[in-house]
Structure formats: structure tokens, C-alpha cells
Design a protein around this nucleic acid. Structure first.
Lengths: 146, 146
DNA sequence: CAGGATCCCGCTAGATACTG
DNA sequence: CAGTATCTAGCGGGATCCTG
């Protein structure tokens, strides 16, 4: 009888690899930015166009909670709050409370957040240049197997 | 009585925005590359280093199913097959079947897949340059609220 | 060797209701 | 206005067993 079974060895290798993955900076970043609302919030706070992603030019602007809520139609209060907290925790946006009555809260991008946006810009450029090709490949593939 | 209630209007706006989101090229791309294994498979097929992500230089190489399975320790058969199928469908990798006995199947990157890798390279660079800062922010934030 | 088919479980997004 | 609290259903993903 071996000191450890093959199954145990496999499980251990898996755990080691998983923790390696969890600590990989790229993996951590992907986990964060792939969140449904992160990119949109960053884009909204990073440019002052009428829609997020309209253009990269333009001053970064701060927005109030309710303003973000309107801009990102379809986001639930829960997810908006949750996402904003996460971004603030990571130092990607700032949260400013002004003690008026009722209270006013504004969110704005940090330098770190703005630099992250530039990476996402690269993603946007590739997507707009090649996603139609990907979609075409997808259709063709589906036709072949059907 | 209005022809539509406020709740109905909100629901409609949400649906419209959701479908807009679903069709956004950047969103589609993020959904694909944020998959746990996509980046790793692409990296593995795009460079011949001992580990995925070791270096961007080096020839793209083709790998067999079992080779990928070993390289990406911890991936389940189901997810590996599922991910490979999705990437092939999108035209990002090729799947080649050689009718030996038993059958031999190799996967390799396409030009499109290689170009996508360059975008992910940008992500990797940002992550390695700034994730420690993000992590530090996170720690500090947690101390403030504790 | 390279998968396909199934069962099952944990997580998480969403809806709803309430509050300083 | 800007959130918090709770409850629940759906599904992504792992484990397991089977096959040409």
C-alpha cells in the first residue's frame, strides 16, 4: 500500500496549480476587469462622453451614485454598490462623501484607475477590429456541424 | 391608468440595455478571455516556454490534447474540451486529427489567436506592474474598516 | 488517446423590502 | 439620496463513469 494514492497525488497537484493560478497577477486582473460592470464604470468615470466608450478623449469626471445608476441602465443597486466598493478597495476609484442633506456621494477615477483604462482600451480596439471575424467563424463552425 | 407602469418601463429599459451590452464587442471579448482557461491555453500554444507566460518570444507550437492536459495541471477534462471547442469555434485555434491508432489530435494557434495574445500581453504587463499596488490598497482599505 | 454523458453542488446575481 | 439586509433560483463547473 503506497503512502499516497494516485488520486491523492492528482488532487495535490491540482491544489498547488490552483493556488499558483490564484496568485498570478494577470489572473487577478482578469478576474477583476471581466466583472460585468467594472469596465463600464471605469469607462463612465474616465471620459465625459454621452455613453461609456464613446471616446477616450475628454476629461475624467466624477459622478454621483444616482448618476451612475442612470448611466448604467440595468444595473441593480446591489451590484452597483458592490462593484463600486470593490473598485474603491483596489484604489481604482475614489469615493467622496459630502455631508449635505441629504448626503451627496461622488465617485471619480484615480490615476491607477485611469492607467488601467488604457489597457482596456487595447481590449476595446482589438474587439472592434476582430470580433466580427470571430462571429463569422462561429457561424461557419455552427453550419459545418449542423 | 397609464398604458404602462413605471416598473414596466424600467424593465424594458433594462432589457434594451442588457441586449446592447450583450452585443458590445468589448463585452463579448471580455466574456471570452476572462474564462479561467482561455488565457492559459492561448499562452501555452503561443509560446514554447516551459510555462505558459514565461516569455512571449519563441515559436508558436502545436500541442496534443494530453500534453495540454498535463501543462495545465488542474483542468478537468470537461473544461479542457469545452474550452478548446469554444476557441476552435471562434477561429482562435485549429484542431487537427491524424488518423493513427489510436487517434492523434493536435491544437495550434491561428493568426487571429496570436493577435489576440498580443492584447493579453498588454494585460499581463499592466498586471505585473500594478497588481502589487492594488493588493497594497486592498490591505490598507481592509485595515481602515476593521 | 481523446473525448461524451450525467449527476450534483456551491456560488452569485437578481428581486424585494427596509433605513439613516 | 445612497445605500443595507435577506431570500431564492439558476447555472457554471467539478467529479465520475463510459466509449470509439
Amino acid at each position: 500500500m503506497p503512502t499516497s494514492t494516485a488520486a491523492q497525488k492528482r488532487a495535490q497537484a491540482k491544489d498547488e496549480y490552483d493556488s499558483f493560478l490564484a496568485q498570478c497577477p494577470s489572473r487577478q486582473l482578469l478576474d477583476r476587469i471581466s466583472d460585468k460592470w467594472v469596465a463600464l464604470i471605469l469607462a463612465a468615470l474616465g471620459s465625459d462622453g454621452p455613453h461609456p466608450g464613446d471616446g477616450y478623449v475628454g476629461e475624467p469626471r466624477s459622478m454621483r451614485y444616482s448618476e451612475l445608476s442612470r448611466r448604467l441602465a440595468g444595473v441593480s443597486q446591489k451590484m452597483l454598490t458592490q462593484t463600486l466598493r470593490a473598485l474603491e478597495r483596489d484604489g481604482l476609484i475614489t469615493r467622496t462623501v459630502t455631508p449635505t442633506v441629504p448626503v451627496t456621494v461622488t465617485y471619480g477615477p484615480t490615476d491607477l484607475g485611469l492607467s488601467l483604462q488604457q489597457v482596456m482600451w487595447g481590449v476595446k480596439v482589438w474587439a472592434e477590429a476582430h470580433m466580427d471575424e470571430v462571429l463569422a467563424n462561429r457561424k461557419e463552425y455552427d453550419n459545418r456541424v449542423s
